[in-house]
């Protein structure tokens, strides 16, 4: 049985409590800094929307072409796949690939900002804790633990004989850091608010144009390839008008209904027509 270590009450007053208060304040500071650094999301790219909507419209045309008259179909097909003036024949700039995205200063800057906001305070805090509060035991956990927790709870004091239940300041810092997230969510309103703020400043609560292709807004799609494929698909479609026999179907349906009872609610008289 080891000797009980007596923890100086001054440690509680001058290390334990200040540490928590400092971390809390730094957390709030970080939250505000992030919202200051966050730049407004870029407004939707008009050309991108136009292209993906044109693809959707062409797919719709292929699927339902049989419901519109032949001239109407050909007018639309001409609009899409005319060799020189068609939508799918226009020259498209190659979409920026992932590498090009990385070299885009805007994207990089945003990523940097995000990282900075989390990394800098983290590193600074660790430095501060190491500088001022290292080298002593801060708290004692009131229940026994296996020795494997030693490396987790006693960072900074590699003392083999020290009981596992004593926690050093650096380790306590980590424990508090993770434990504080719930508190921040409570105090600062959580990420829910962030999202809505994002939506507000973007000005698009529901954006029908952003869905097609499953592409995230801001993520470029290779429409050049899609356009070529769609033009090819369109050229394979043979227009067959579904309504060519509509009247015959109607009259045949009446005769059928007349013979087999009152389907369609058609009068029996109509049979004779």
């Amino acid at each position: 049985m080891q000797h009980e270590l007596v923890l100086d009450p001054a440690i509680r007053d001058w290390v334990f409590l200040p540490l928590i208060v400092i971390m809390f304040l730094v957390g709030i500071l970080r939250h505000n800094a992030t919202s200051l650094l966050r730049s407004d999301p870029k407004p939707g790219d008009k050309e991108q929307v136009k292209q993906s909507m044109a693809l959707m419209r062409s797919r719709r045309l292929r699927a339902n072409a049989r419901y519109i008259p032949e001239e109407a179909y050909h007018a639309r097909r001409h609009y899409f796949s005319h060799p020189t003036t068609g939508v799918f024949s226009q020259k498209l700039e190659a979409p920026p690939n992932a590498l090009a995205m990385m070299s885009d200063p805007d994207v990089m800057q945003n990523m940097m900002k995000g990282n900075m906001a989390t990394m800098v305070p983290q590193v600074a805090m660790m430095g501060v804790v190491n500088q001022f509060f290292s080298g002593f035991v801060l708290v004692k956990i009131p229940f026994p633990l296996t020795p494997s927790f030693k490396s987790m709870l006693q960072r900074g004091i590699p003392l083999a004989s020290l009981d596992v239940t004593y926690v050093t300041s650096l380790s306590w810092y980590f424990i508090v850091m993770f434990g504080m997230q719930g508190l921040f969510r409570l105090v600062l309103g959580g990420s829910e608010e962030d999202e809505s703020a994002l939506m507000m400043s973007a000005g698009m609560g529901m954006m029908p144009g952003m869905m097609p292709g499953g592409a995230m807004p801001g993520q470029p799609v290779d429409n050049k390839k899609n356009f070529e494929q769609e033009r090819e698909n369109l050229s394979l479609v043979e227009h067959k008008w579904a309504l060519a026999e509509a009247e015959d179907v109607l009259l045949a349906g009446v005769k059928l209904a007349g013979a087999s009872g009152a389907r369609r609610g058609a009068p029996a008289k109509a049979k004779s027509s």
């Binding site: 008259p69 579904a242 509509a246 179907v249 109607l250 349906g253 369609r264 609610g265």
Partner: peptide, 16 residues
Amino acid sequence: KTARKYYAHSLNICPQ
């Protein structure tokens, strides 16, 4: 003539 086809088709879809 086309109109007649569309009326007929409308009736095919919705006879009541």
